[in-house]
Nucleic acid binder design. Structure first.
Lengths: 242, 242
DNA sequence: CGTGGAGTTGAACGATGTCAATCTTAGTGG
DNA sequence: CCACTAAGATTGACATCGTTCAACTCCACG
């Protein structure tokens, strides 16, 4: 159980991905080839199996992860014990307490995850000595910041169905590069995760899902997979949001 | 009216201040003295009167503002024409399209505002040549990112009354340094602004405000000023949130 | 076969949004 | 200085959506 009243000022999940990604274009700005090569010099690779924890809330994390493949969730707990998912994390996302001391969020792998491990002291030293590389981190942080703000709006303004469609859009953006079959969207997380991410109750998620199916917008293929059956309505619903 | 369907990937309101600031401690990490001196070399000072616009959505902003005094709001429009306030901006906040081309948010002064104007090309050049300075920007961005994520949670999880209390807490943190009388909190913005920031309807804001008064938590001194009459309940309510 | 966790479904409740009417306040001009 | 006006704020009635609680189903795994 988590009872930490005094959450530290921390947990910069740099690669935190909010509900809504840009409609078009890739999900995340990637680091340049040279940047990756420089980082590779101080990085090692780690594998996590599904369900494994990458960071624990309160950890004095000594490193930052850069996800290579897989999906993770970054979450914390409400005083009532309920989980809140700040972000789902995908390939190219950076996770770690950059600019903070310790970590407020717990990060757990949803699917098996492969990630670069960047020791924090070495990374900080590298960034401070390499303005060009640091610049890319800054741009990335600004990008995430914008997305987090969009997420905030999305959560406060949109209906249950719209929130789900946004999530599907986000997942699609991240799956497409992996060559997923068009129209099919894989949902690696449980309904409870979806509820905790969208700020809804599990029951509401279930109901909204089936209502979208009744309306012919999506089709539930199985619990882990859906299909967009009405692209125009899907796009229209997304356009209604901000 | 705003009909821009294709909002650019932009508007990094770097200093965006979300609903909830850290309970303790100053609101924003400030730039160091030396950093300010370096920035001052490329900066000029500008004054805005209440209601004046600092940035327009879509502007190809050629500069970034660093607020010295006053309060501003950064907002955009929903498709239905409603305003959404991403953040209130206070002293020390940075506003501008860092890492983006143009600006998606409109920024308007709520009170008279004094701000440093930093020409973007010069700033970028300076940052890229000065890792230490850039580092401070990066830290600030990470800090804002965390706060934006907290804001997102706050909006999706908390009740109307809690959201208002969070806003009061935020305002208090920003007013205290200015020597405001203890317990009194000045609300420079209109109820509509509060509604657009908290994601509530104006009517709900009004009702929640008066309900808090009936419960003895706050006292409405006048439309622009309230007083926390029950600090312990206030603190307890804040502790209930995340 | 059970068993347990995840998911679905139903019914009742409650909080917030919406619409409409009214009140208050600040600012304006006589 | 006062009356008028318009914008902002409040209040009430009602509709809506999401939550909660409870029961039930489905499926994977022993």
């Amino acid at each position: 159980m988590n009872k930490s009243g005094k959450r530290a000022d921390s947990a910069a999940s740099l690669g935190a991905v909010p509900l809504r990604a840009d409609k078009i274009g890739a999900a995340n700005p990637m680091l340049s080839i040279e940047a990756r090569q420089k980082l590779a010099l101080i990085a090692s690779i780690r594998h996590f199996s599904a369900g494994e924890t990458l960071f624990h809330e309160g950890d004095e994390a000594a490193f930052i992860f850069n996800i290579i493949s897989g999906v993770a969730k970054s979450y914390s707990f409400l005083p009532d014990g309920r989980e809140v998912i700040q972000a789902f994390l995908f390939a190219n996302d950076l996770i770690g307490p950059l600019g903070g001391e310790s970590f407020v969020n717990t990060v757990k792998a949803i699917t098996p995850v492969v990630a670069y491990t960047l020791p924090l002291p070495a990374l900080v030293k590298l960034l401070r000595s390499d303005p060009g590389l640091q610049w890319q981190f800054l741009i990335k942080a600004c990008h995430e910041l914008r997305q987090a703000q969009q997420h905030a709006i999305a959560l406060s303004q949109n209906s249950a169905k719209q929130r789900l469609l946004m999530l599907f859009n986000l997942l699609r953006l991240h799956n497409e590069p992996l060559g997923a079959s068009a129209g099919h969207i894989h949902l690696p997380m449980t309904r409870t995760d979806i509820a905790d991410y969208t700020g809804l109750a599990v029951e509401t998620v279930s109901r909204a899902l089936h209502q979208l199916q009744r309306e012919g917008v999506i089709r539930l293929i199985n619990q882990q997979c859906i299909e967009i059956t009405d692209e125009s309505t899907f796009a229209a619903a997304l356009a209604m949001e901000i």
